[in-house]
Simulated assay, not measured.
Amino acid sequence: MTPPPPPLGRSRKRGSHVFDAALDDTALATARTALGQGRWSVVRGLLVDTGDDWDRRGHRVTALAQETTTSAWAQDWRIAEPESADAAVLFALAAVQRALNGKARPDAARAACRTAAGLVPADPTPWLGLLMLERTVGTEEDVVQLFDEVRHRHPDHHHAHHLMIARLAERRADAGQDPMHEVYDFAAWAAEQAPADSPLAILPVVAHAERYRVLALAGREPADPLSSGHWVGRRARQVMKAAFDWWLEWEREDHPRNRVDLNFLAHAKYCGGRAAEAAALFHRIGNHITPAPWSYPDRDPSEAFREARNASLGTG
């Protein structure tokens, strides 16, 4: 299996940019600062306000979980309020992050996620945590079952679909540029079954980028995406046009992971030689940069983003 894409982090500084998992969620950033000071009551209020907006809840909990002190503060919260499902979910996702970082046993993270899932059966977030964990180490059957658990609770779960795309793209690296690869079929199916305004419409672009990552790491595509025909073929042009047209019509600025989609779309437009369209996307992205897909296959994401933005905007 090829190495997984890098996770978003709060302050993964590369070059001149700091990658912030909170993206443009200022309430999340405020609560994260408070949690770092031990004021978990602010996080409690944030998650109460989030309610059953499952994409936003997943985004907020996973971003909070990436902080090194979250596990300890979430444990304090659990002790103070043992009945709190929110405390259990945050503790579970922090355990997943620690396991992914090699600082805790995966079995402990699995147990924490299943305990949290039992406390709040309708919440897909504990299952998202398990999917994040098994995405890199689990069997195919495990990953599919966990994805189904998430979709059962929220059929259009944004983060879960991205994780599945990344996993599926890693199948059959030796197949090369196969237009019938299963990752493309999955992305097209997910985009088609989602509501018209769903950001899952961008999934075919994500699939294209993830497949490039796999092929480039396998030596079947150039390490410089601009040197690859992967982005300029007929299928690629159709996928990029459909996704850009969707963005022009719907945009979904209100979605918590909007900037994730914009980074994938700007990357695709730039690699496909569509500088004017890429420029419009770079304006929307602002400072909310994500490591993926700029790091693909093994590039410095800050440098890659800066080069692409400057070239598209015509700046030095």
Rank of each mutant, 00 (worst) to 15 (best):
A80P: 12
P225W: 03
R235T: 09
V183M: 02
G229L: 03
D224F: 09
V214S: 09
L28R: 05
Q238G: 14
M132C: 13
E210A: 08
F91R: 13
E210Y: 04
V48C: 07
G9A: 13
V150C: 05
V205Q: 06
Q66H: 09
L163V: 04
R274T: 00
V232L: 05
H283K: 13
P6R: 15
S198P: 11
R60A: 02
P256I: 01
D298S: 13
H158V: 03
Q193I: 15
A27F: 04
P179H: 10
A187I: 10
W294C: 00
P124D: 03
M240D: 05
A196F: 06
Y212S: 04
A209D: 13
F282Q: 02
T70A: 11
W54I: 02
T69S: 14
S228E: 06
A92W: 10
D142F: 04
P293Y: 00
R153K: 07
V42Q: 09
Q145G: 08
V239R: 09
H152S: 15
P106V: 12
L203I: 02
H267F: 15
V239N: 05
P222N: 07
S302I: 03
A72Q: 13
D55G: 00
V206Y: 05
L217Q: 15
S312I: 00
A292D: 14
D300P: 06
M1N: 08
L168Q: 04
Q37R: 15
H230R: 11
E83Q: 14
D185H: 13
D55I: 01
L90N: 05
R171P: 02
A275E: 11
A207Q: 02
L248N: 12
W250P: 01
N287W: 01
L203P: 12
I79P: 02
D49Y: 04
R78M: 13
V120K: 14
L8C: 10
A275P: 03
R98Q: 14
E303W: 08
P124T: 04
N310M: 11
